[in-house]
Design a protein around this nucleic acid. Sequence first.
RNA 1: UCCCUGGUAGCUCAGCUGGUUAGAGCACCUGACUGUUAAUCAGGGGGUCGUUGGUUCAAGUCCAACCCGGGGAGCCA
Length: 483
Amino acid sequence: MHSIQFALDDESLTNTTITVAGWVRTFRNDRFIALNDGSTIRNLQCVIDQKEVDAATLARFTTGAAVQCTGELVPSQGSGQRVEMKVTAVEVIGDCPAEKYPIQPKKHSLEFLRENAHLRFRTNTYSAVFRMRHQVSFGIHEYFDTHGYNYFHAPIITASDAEGAGEMFRVSTLDAKQPPLNESGEVDFEEDFFGAESHLTVSGQLQAETAALALGKVYTFGPTFRAENSNTTRHLAEFWMVEPEAAFMDLKGDMDLAEGLCKHLISRVLRNSMDDLQFLDARLAEEEKSKPQDQRSEMGLIDRLKFVLENPFERITYDDAINILLRSKPYQKKKFQFPVEWDVDLQSEHERYLVEKHFKKPVIVTGYPAKIKAFYMRTNAPGDFGYSEKGKTVAAMDVLFPGIGEIIGGSQREERLDVLEARMDEMGVPKGELWWYLDTRRFGTVPHAGFGLGLERFVLFVTGMGNIRDVIPYPRAPKSAEF
RNA sequence: UCCCUGGUAGCUCAGCUGGUUAGAGCACCUGACUGUUAAUCAGGGGGUCGUUGGUUCAAGUCCAACCCGGGGAGCCA
């Protein structure tokens, strides 16, 4: 058995007899099976000798049917492909009743295919997306491995709710209808499986930090859960996150790492996914046509990826960002819906302006006000990178991408025990629960840094897809966990 | 959660200021054709107009509530 990719690309197979198996995309003229086996977005045209195949069998070559073909690979008479198969033996492995099968050889809406998530892998768009998702995932391991990072498996279940990254899902084996109660009438989680109220992780960062302060460089890569009631094209309740963490690394090193990773992944898909990219590029171009002229993007998908790869990310401070926004046309024409002022987080519209209008490339914003950032971020002092006269800032960095917004959020961590404890008190983070985290600052603490990259957001960028639910196999979101 | 928008055939959509048997393209079925590229041509079947209630002589069309989808915002990755 040969993969169709191999059959199409390996010229030494021409004029030899091989066997392929896959699913029928279309059956034209009672003679041409366009066969796809998922190894590539391209189909192999299998030409049936009608004298050899009876009418009953021909009728079974319906869209979606699983078919195995054996025959000689010969130069194609038609113009759509280099080689085709002159079929000498054909067998239907699995029938696909045409009147019931939802996937037709026509353009389907992404909404419809989302409702048929179990079948959507059989379309060109989704097979391309998921092959690319694999390339990105594998590229993440490749990048960190070659840079000396250890793959670290942070726990999925945690009994601490102090991670500070949002609402969490509870993990429990208690009877939801009749939970045991304690003396004060509240649910007694001491009776629960873990002996304490437990949740699904919202981040493996704190655990990764403990490992980084021994192994030096680690990264986590796994599912992450947020119980936020977010209904957007870039949020999921279950998503995959990459979280590198490195000892003796400062914020500049963190930015270099983030930019290096993004560029590695982009160069990998440009190298390994060109067929899929060309298809998605054309798909996107088609979609852009239906948009009003002023909303169309100037570059196609592949050009955009090359542009990001070849140009340094713009690195600015939060102060710079505010100043640019205050001088911007939309601000002066009062087009922004939200105020631009120091100590207030940048809104989507502000980030989009910076990335899509002003710089027209990925932007890394550093030195955010402490007030709007997490407790573990390192407090800046005069002379520190991103320090501002206007108020207390932290060594945070957000990487903003065109069309998606924040794709990476990271920081240099607060390694000074006294500063960290003061900050936790200030923000009401319970120190008791995080005693183990604080121990890292008690015993041989060192400067260190890391970030979180949303896998799906990155896949969104490299595939040109618009909705995050289209780049994960089975999306989990509020009111939505089918399949 | 808030704002906007939509729900009519398997899919994509049309259906005007309420008015008789609700339409098209694709898909499907039947036949023809046979080097096609989402093949083509002819014919055919297929609808509780998201749900419930209301207004009216009359509702796909107007009103209300609810359910579901899409887009935007917030939260963030």
